[in-house]
Each structure stands twice: as structure tokens, then as C-alpha cells.
């Protein structure tokens, strides 16, 4: 009977917060086709895009009950439950997107995934990502003093918040749709976003300066409900893990080229683009490491494995 159940066709539900045109959706839709073919049609994957099933927290809860089978959740959401993932959200952890791609495949980063089932009820397969984060401001920014006391929109996660507090900015969590208005009327003075989000929302028209810092990478994790994973035959588990790994690796591999293209587009805009390194922020990075080192042991290991300079 067990064997028969394993052979029965199975529909896997994959929930995403991103809309259908997004790279994540396209890569994972392609993965669904690949998995269907590789399993001779035993597995089909249905995508629920645009947060149709709820936000990331809601999808995580559905992964836990087994209502949802798969998802690609940002490390921001996961760090909310597991401090250890704060290491991946540390400032200036990767020099650029190429290094970020390498880092996310490094055993230290992959090792963090081992703790996911006990902490989140999900099996973590592999990392995906969006572009590196930059600081864009309404006014011209020349020195750190220009940033002090200014309000910056961030994605709500404790490490992100702590870094901006340390550099003397006032971190303000706002939902993505509210940013345009807030930035136009001065309710916030800047945003902490990747190239793609800036271009899609035309924030380059509202900002005078972009500090090209690459200060954060922004990974996501391909997850499967541990409850569901436990019901699969070992061969199927490996099939899903293997194909998902290929798909997310392909996603990450496509990022440097996208980043280069989008960076060129932004350099051509009216916004001034200033390459900026960690030294711009004084000892904020060192202070961050002191605060987060004990909570996220991987932080020191990653700094050692990917030294700057």
C-alpha cells in the first residue's frame, strides 16, 4: 500500500509572494515542468503567486500544517524565527553579487539550513536571492553626516534594523506599495532596496543619490513542508531536492548578469550613483558584529571565509 501511495500522482502546491513575471516565479515554474518530466508525471507543481495564499508568515504557517507543500521565503522572514540566519543579513558580508552567489553555496551558509526543520517545520533545500541592497536617498548624500537622523525604509528584520540604528539612521518599516508616496512627500528620506525594486518603482526619479554599497545581500530559501517531506519515498525526496537545487542555482547564476544590466540602467538615470565601501560607515560594521556574533555564530565564520581587502 505504501508503495502504491508513493506511485500515485501528487500535486505539489508552491506559494510565492512575487508576481508571475518575477524571476523567482519563472524559474520555479520551469522547475515544476522539469520535476513533472523527471517523475514521469507523478508530480505536478501548482504555483500560487503574488501572495495569493497570504504573506510570508502565513505561508510558513501553512507549510507547517502541510496545507502548502513548497515555498521560497526570504531570509528576512526566517531570521525572525532563527537568529542564526542573521549572519546572512549582516552588513558588508559579501563584496558584490558574484561573491554573494558563492557565499550562498558555501558549506557555512548551507549548514544553516540543517537547523530549519526543528526551528520552522520546513526542510530547506537551497538558497535563491534577489539583488544586492543599496541605500538611495532623496537628498544628495556626500558623507555619513548627511545620513544621520534620516528616515530610511527597510524590510522589517532585526539585523537590518540594528545596522541602520548603528549608522545613526531611523529605520522605518513600510510595505512596498507605500514607499512611493512616502518617498515623494518626505515621510521617509531614503530606501534600502535592490536595483530591480528601484527600477520597477521608478525610485530613481525620486532620489538624488544612490550609495552603491552592496551592503546587504538578500537571500531566500527554497523550502518544503517537513510534514509533507516525511511522507515522500527517499528517491522522491532526492529528486525534489536535486531538481530544486538546480533551479535555484540557475536563479542565482542569472543574478550577476541582471545586476550588471540594471546597474547600467540606473547609472544612465539622473540619480547620482556613488560607489561606497564599509569604511564610509565608521565602526558600525564592527559594532554590528559584536552585537550579532553571539546570536549568529556563522557570522564570524563567513567573515573569515570571505575576507575583505
Amino acid at each position: 500500500a505504501n508503495h502504491a501511495r508513493a506511485q500515485a500522482p501528487r500535486e505539489l502546491r508552491l506559494g510565492l509572494i512575487t508576481p508571475p513575471p518575477h524571476t523567482w516565479n519563472q524559474q520555479l515554474a520551469a522547475w515544476g515542468t522539469r520535476l513533472r518530466d523527471a517523475s514521469n508525471g507523478r508530480f505536478t507543481v501548482t504555483l500560487f503567486p503574488s501572495g495569493q495564499l497570504g504573506n510570508e508568515a502565513a505561508m510558513l504557517q501553512q507549510l507547517q500544517t502541510g496545507a502548502l507543500d513548497l515555498s521560497l521565503l526570504t531570509v528576512s522572514e526566517i531570521s525572525n524565527r532563527v537568529d542564526a540566519f542573521g549572519a546572512l543579513l549582516a552588513p558588508f558580508i559579501a563584496r558584490n553579487i558574484e561573491e554573494a552567489v558563492r557565499m550562498l553555496r558555501h558549506p557555512i551558509a548551507l549548514g544553516l539550513l540543517n537547523g530549519l526543520p526543528q526551528a520552522t517545520g520546513c526542510v530547506g533545500f537551497r538558497y535563491g536571492m534577489v539583488g544586492m541592497r543599496q541605500i538611495s536617498t532623496r537628498e544628495v548624500t556626500n558623507t555619513l553626516a548627511d545620513l544621520r537622523g534620516k528616515k530610511v525604509r527597510i524590510t522589517p528584520a532585526a539585523p537590518t534594523r540594528d545596522f541602520f540604528n548603528l549608522i545613526g539612521m531611523a529605520p522605518t518599516p513600510l510595505p512596498l506599495p507605500a514607499i512611493f508616496e512616502a518617498l515623494s512627500n518626505g515621510q521617509i528620506d531614503g530606501v534600502d532596496l535592490d536595483f530591480e525594486s528601484i527600477i520597477n518603482n521608478r525610485f530613481q526619479d525620486l532620489c538624488r543619490t544612490m550609495l552603491l554599497t552592496n551592503h546587504f545581500m538578500f537571500p531566500a530559501v527554497g523550502l518544503m513542508s517537513a510534514r509533507v517531506f516525511g511522507t515522500l519515498a527517499p528517491a522522491d525526496r532526492e529528486l525534489i531536492r536535486g531538481t530544486m537545487t538546480e533551479a535555484l542555482d540557475a536563479l542565482c547564476d542569472s543574478m550577476p548578469e541582471r545586476e550588471a544590466r540594471q546597474g547600467a540602467q540606473l547609472r544612465a538615470s539622473n540619480m547620482q550613483v556613488r560607489p561606497t565601501g564599509p569604511e564610509f560607515f565608521g565602526d558600525a560594521v564592527a559594532q554590528f558584529d559584536r552585537a550579532w556574533g553571539p546570536r549568529a555564530p556563522a557570522l564570524a565564520q563567513l567573515r573569515a571565509a570571505f575576507p575583505r581587502g
Binding site: A57, T65, Q118, A119, G121, P156, A157, S225, R227
Partner: peptide
């Protein structure tokens, strides 16, 4: 709470608000 979670992956006592 951790043992409770590992029994049935019911996240009710592990869930944290974002901010």
C-alpha cells in the same frame, strides 16, 4: 515549547510578529 513544536510542527507558540 520547542518540544511541542517538534511533535507536530504546530508553530503557534513559536510564531513571532515581525516588529
Amino acid at each position: 515549547l520547542q518540544a511541542f513544536f517538534e511533535v507536530n510542527y504546530n508553530g503557534i507558540y513559536m510564531d513571532r510578529p515581525t516588529t
